[in-house]
Simulated scan of single mutants.
Amino acid sequence: MMKKSKSFLALLLGVGIAGHSLAQQSLVERQQFVDIKSVIENVEYDIRYATSNNFVGERIDGYLASKCLIHRDAMSSLRDIVNELAKQDLRLKFFDCYRPEKAVAHFMSWANDLSDTKTKADYYPNLDKSALVGPYIAERSGHSRGFTVDLTLVRKDGSGQYVELDMGSSYDLFDPLSNTDNPGINASQRKNRQLLKTVMESHGFAAYNMEWWHFTYRDMTTQQKQQYYDFDVN
């Protein structure tokens, strides 16, 4: 009986130590990231995955707060972008930044449930849901490395509110219309997309041409390119 009790206690201690180690690892990882708004005040947030206003139709796993986290190594370039845009009375509006791997798994679970089409009209009206995995939804996302952002441009209107520039399609619209160089958009929309792309690329962010809102910081180390994270956004 004593041997069993000791074994059980050792098991509990082992689980406790392992849980503590994971928590410590998560804390260390989190410390490499910063909430953009805590450093740069003149930016806007619309963190869709912390709400039900997204293509899944519910809050996404791992989003416990409406924050936009990014790796500290990319912050200097973001600050330069914000300062440049301020000269044109423009701001960045962020939809998403760091994305936990558990959130990516949530996306994949939704994408594989072909019976759930309640958001089709708003997010993929011209595509079958079965076509989303691959070009739009993947088993692993660059967002989970902490160097990718989804964003747009906003300008203050007469009432003092920051209003999104017309980009020709809404955020997370899974459709060729969201391709940066889609020929179906008008001249003004093309100009707005090009403005966003130009300012982001001039400060080290590479565009993803299937989605006009999606940019990844290029200056990553080899280790950073291989590192994916799963701590919560909180």
Rank of each mutant, 00 (worst) to 15 (best):
N234E: 06
D150S: 08
P100W: 00
L114W: 12
A138S: 12
A138T: 10
G19F: 04
E58M: 14
D232K: 13
Q24A: 15
D166C: 03
Q189L: 05
S77L: 09
L27E: 15
T216P: 11
K4P: 03
G134P: 03
Y208R: 10
A10E: 13
Q223W: 08
A74T: 02
I36V: 11
R193Q: 10
S188M: 09
R72K: 14
T148H: 05
W110V: 10
N182P: 02
E41D: 13
Y162S: 10
N186F: 04
T152W: 02
I40G: 00
A131S: 09
L27K: 15
R59E: 07
R218C: 15
L132D: 01
A65G: 04
A23F: 13
G184P: 01
L173N: 01
P125W: 12
G134Y: 03
G62I: 00
R72Q: 10
M75V: 11
Q32I: 05
Q189R: 07
A50G: 11
H20C: 08
K156G: 01
M108D: 03
Q226T: 13
V39C: 02
A206N: 11
V56H: 00
Q226P: 09
F107N: 00
R193N: 09
Y124A: 01
S66C: 10
S109I: 10
W110C: 07
N192K: 12
H143N: 03
Y229V: 06
S115W: 12
G204F: 07
L22M: 15
S130A: 14
K67S: 03
I60A: 01
D113A: 07
A105M: 06
G19Y: 04
F215S: 05
W110M: 11
S21P: 07
S21E: 04
E211T: 08
G57S: 08
K3L: 10
N126Y: 14
H143S: 02
Y124I: 04
R99H: 14
F231N: 03
V82L: 06
Y228D: 13
A206G: 11
G168R: 00
A207V: 13
D230Y: 01
Q224Y: 05
F215P: 00
S144C: 14
F55S: 00
W110A: 07
A105V: 08
L12M: 15
V199I: 14
D46G: 06
S5V: 06
R190C: 11
F215T: 09
R59S: 12
Q88M: 15
D150E: 09
V39H: 01
L12W: 11
D166F: 04
G158K: 14
D46M: 15
F107W: 12
S159A: 12
L173M: 05
H143W: 07
Q32N: 12
A18W: 13
S202K: 15
F231Y: 06
Y228N: 09
G134Q: 05
L127E: 00
S144L: 07
V34I: 15
E44W: 02
S66H: 11
E164S: 07
N186G: 00
K197T: 05
M200C: 08
Y171K: 00
K93C: 08
S66V: 09
S21K: 09
A23T: 06
L12V: 12
G62T: 00
K225T: 11
